[in-house]
Design a protein around this nucleic acid. Structure first.
Length: 763
DNA sequence: TCATAGCCTTTTTTT
DNA sequence: AAGGCTATGA
């Protein structure tokens, strides 16, 4: 690789950013302006200027972004790239806390609590404190605690602040401060940090231990932050402190793409950056190389309304490109079908590959209809986000065993595994152990391993057996057995895999395979992890901090991408579909309820639009399932906000934008539909609201019975229906995604049931 | 005291 | 749709 070659490929502002010698630098990078290239070249350039990679810290928001950047740097600079300190905020500071956590009273084996752990812990605290969980909602309380931590407000400060006390009293939640305190104490006692703690504690570490701060300040001669618009106060302070000595801070961001305020991101960080660094050098990258003029202009027309912005003009010199298509569907299933057929046609007509397509939605729950439609057409897809591999029950169960083996204070892991597989230890006993530990300031392990002192009776010997089991795992680790060996042994000897192995249902089989898959990934980690730390706790850390975007990657297969708009940040695709363009969905209901200005939702829309290189399609449905209920939907106001000149009057069966306006003349159909019962013979027109009262004879109850996966039902199956009794399936009609079964019931004669509503037990 | 069936509530995005 | 909660029976 020639030394200077790559500089020639850059435009003037890009080159200026790459070769900025030192001192604070802010790169305002519009969408598609070659930001990643600039960042990677800058790092490569610094290394050419004799800066040791070891002294460069580069912070990103996803592991994937970090990994890609490292690869690209390697391509320019070679093996040296390995020594860079590059990763997500959370993973880099988790690493530092593993080294330095002793100063704060944590061991180097501390557990990282994920959101489920945090919620579970909080739930039990609320219960213990005898608070009403209808008033103190777990999600709300956790959010409150999280915001406090991200703003660096300790529980001490929180409970002493008269403003918060008043606020909480007014909100009828005077105990929030105490909850915060208890939550923090419990985490500490469990030798655990939640996601926010990783940043919060880093701040505490740097504040209270100046020698540590000093060490890292001198180590990191250059600090770079990607996606700076998404940093919160806590992250901002860390980067400022770390760069205080050398003053070589380089931030890259785009205020127009700030979409993480909900988790504490503070757009002011980038808007006010100049105020913090008077001799700041600012470089603006405004030329978009990614998208057509139409797409760039349409995107600009969307955020033109936003008030809080840095001045910049993103423009494209690419071709004009085709206009933006709008598709109207009658239902969410039809939306899936229309998009899938469109992908099919586009592939045939323009010789595109699956990887050229992305379907972007506002919420993960929307993926279902698209998955079904794509599967039906044999189009391969990959789903990013949603319930990830590591959130599956069987995986979390085994991970909990591993966690408890590594960190025997980990209460949440303990609660998960103590009665799994069933040992006859119930909630009462577990609660007793947890409370005993908390009251006597002991580790969970201290209580469990001396259970006879605390709990009398039959259970105590069962718990003894459990303790012996865990002890044997700990011993294996001490003997230096590698993570994979220990994990496989745990899976087998705990009885977890045995239980799954004996479950011969389809789900049981896949659960068993998942566990094997997890063991494989541990093996991989042990065999060829890049880092030198191959301990079990290192593995657990990578798993917890893994982003949704990091999973999958089963080779470079040709697949359509399905993901949320949030997940799509930083990516690009030739053809993009933004689906579910409906009021209350996008913009989301929550946003509409909470804030009058929709600036962040609008920026989200902007991010979605600018993912497209060649062609953009927007779609919405007139009705949609939500929590098992069918609802009517209005087209999103965002459709109105795009400059009309960029919109396409769609062909043939697609409904044009002007037709959409006509729709507004009709009376609004706001009725909530299908609450409880649905007409069995109204497949296409099952949108009519049906009363909640007693069903007429031709209706089928839709309440819970034994849920069965309707896709496995076959002719000849014997079934039981909650109302009609036992029956035999004599005919199956499969029409698109709608499935009907004609069943002969012993007493009721033949009935045809729409399976999405009928709940049958297969006998 | 524990296990289970069925009822009830939830309501976005992610490290 | 899914996970927590509660009543019920063992």
């Amino acid at each position: 690789m020639g030394k200077v070659n790559y500089l020639d490929t850059l435009n003037a502002p890009q080159r200026e950013a790459v070769t900025h010698a030192g001192g604070p630098l802010m790169i305002i990078a519009g969408a598609g302006s070659g930001k990643t290239r600039v960042l990677t070249y800058r790092i490569a350039w610094l290394i050419e200027q004799e800066v040791d990679p070891f002294n460069i810290l580069a912070l990103t928001f996803t592991n994937k972004a970090a990994g890609e950047m490292r690869q690209r740097i390697e391509a320019v600079i070679g093996n040296d790239a390995k020594n860079l300190w590059m990763g997500t905020f959370h993973s880099i500071f988790a690493k530092i806390l593993r080294f330095e956590g002793k100063r704060l009273g944590y061991t180097s084996d501390f557990t990282i609590y994920d959101t489920d752990d945090s919620k579970s812990l909080l739930r039990s605290i609320i219960k213990e404190m005898n608070l009403d969980d209808k008033v103190y909602k777990v999600n709300f309380v956790l959010n409150r605690i999280s915001s406090a931590k991200n703003a660096l407000i300790s529980w001490e400060a929180y409970t002493q602040n008269p403003i918060y006390i008043e606020e909480d009293k007014a909100a009828k939640m005077p105990e929030l401060g105490r909850l915060y305190k208890t939550y923090v104490m419990r985490c500490f006692q469990a030798n655990a940090m939640d996601f926010d703690d990783l940043l919060y504690n880093t701040n505490v570490l740097f504040r209270d231990h100046l020698d540590v701060l000093n060490k890292y300040q001198h180590k990191f001669k250059h600090v770079m932050v990607d996606e700076f618009q998404d940093t919160n106060v806590s992250q901002y302070l860390i980067t400022r402190k770390l760069s205080a000595v050398h003053q070589n801070i380089c931030i890259v961001g785009d205020d127009a793409q700030s979409i993480y305020a909900f988790r504490g991101a503070n757009i002011q960080n980038i808007l006010n950056f100049k105020a913090d660094y008077p001799d700041l050098k600012v470089v603006k990258l405004e030329q978009n190389y990614r998208s057509t003029k139409t797409i760039v202009n349409a995107a600009n027309s969307v955020i033109a309304k936003n008030k809080e912005q840095l001045e910049k003009t993103v423009f494209s010199e690419n071709e004009e490109g085709s206009k933006i298509n709008i598709i109207k569907a009658t239902s969410d299933n039809e939306e899936g079908n229309l998009i899938a057929s469109d992908i099919f046609e586009e592939k045939n007509n323009h010789g595109l590959k699956n990887t050229d397509f992305a379907i972007l939605y506002r919420t993960n729950a929307q993926s279902r209809a698209f998955e079904e439609a794509l599967r039906k057409r044999n189009i391969k897809y990959r789903l990013i986000g949603g319930l990830s591999f590591y959130q599956r029950k069987e995986i979390k169960d085994l991970l909990a065993y591993l966690r408890f083996t590594v960190n025997q204070s980990d209460i949440e892991a303990f609660k998960r595994i103590i009665n799994l597989p069933k040992r006859g230890i119930g909630d009462t006993t577990v609660a007793k152990i947890v409370v005993t530990a908390a009251e006597n300031n002991l580790r969970i392990w201290d209580v469990v391993s001396n259970i006879h002192q605390y709990v009398a009776g039959r259970v105590s010997s069962t718990i003894d057996d459990f303790a012996t089991l865990i002890k044997s795992y700990g011993l294996m680790l001490e003997e230096g057995k590698d993570a994979h060996t220990v994990a496989s042994y745990i899976a087998k000897s705990s009885g977890l895999t045995k239980e799954l192995y004996e479950d011969k249902t389809v789900e049981g089989l896949s659960r068993y395979e998942n566990v094997q898959e997890l063991l494989n990934s541990i093996k991989q980690f042990v065999d060829n992890s890049e880092s030198d730390d191959k301990s079990l706790s290192a593995f657990l850390q990578t798993v917890t901090l893994m982003t949704n975007a990091d999973e999958d990657d089963d080779g470079d297969q040709d697949k359509v991408t399905l993901m949320t708009i949030h997940g799509a940040k930083g990516l690009e695709f030739k053809n993009v579909y933004i689906v579910g363009m409906e009021e209350n969905l996008f913009p989301s209901q929550m946003m509409l309820a909470r804030r009058s200005d929709l600036e962040e939702e609008r920026r989200l829309f902007y991010v979605a639009i600018t993912r497209a290189e060649k062609k953009l399609t927007l779609s919405y449905a007139e009705s949609r399932y939500n929590y098992g209920r069918l609802n009517y939907c209005e087209p999103s106001r965002f459709l109105e906000e795009i400059d009309k000149e960029y919109l396409q009057v769609a062909r043939n069966r697609f409904v044009s934008y002007s037709n959409m306006e006509d729709r507004n003349d009709q009376p609004a159909k706001q009725t909530r539909a299908v609450s409880g019962f649905v007409k069995k013979d109204s497949i296409k027109s099952n949108l009519k609201p049906v009363s909640k009262s007693t069903p007429p004879a031709n209706h089928v109850p839709s309440g819970d019975f034994v849920a069965s996966d309707t896709s496995i039902l076959k002719e000849g199956d014997k079934v039981e229906h909650p109302k009609f009794g036992f029956g035999l399936v004599i005919k199956m009609d499969i029409n698109g995604t709608d499935r009907k079964a004609t069943i002969r019931f012993d007493t009721q004669g033949e009935k045809t049931l729409l399976l999405s509503f009928a709940k049958l037990r297969i006998l």
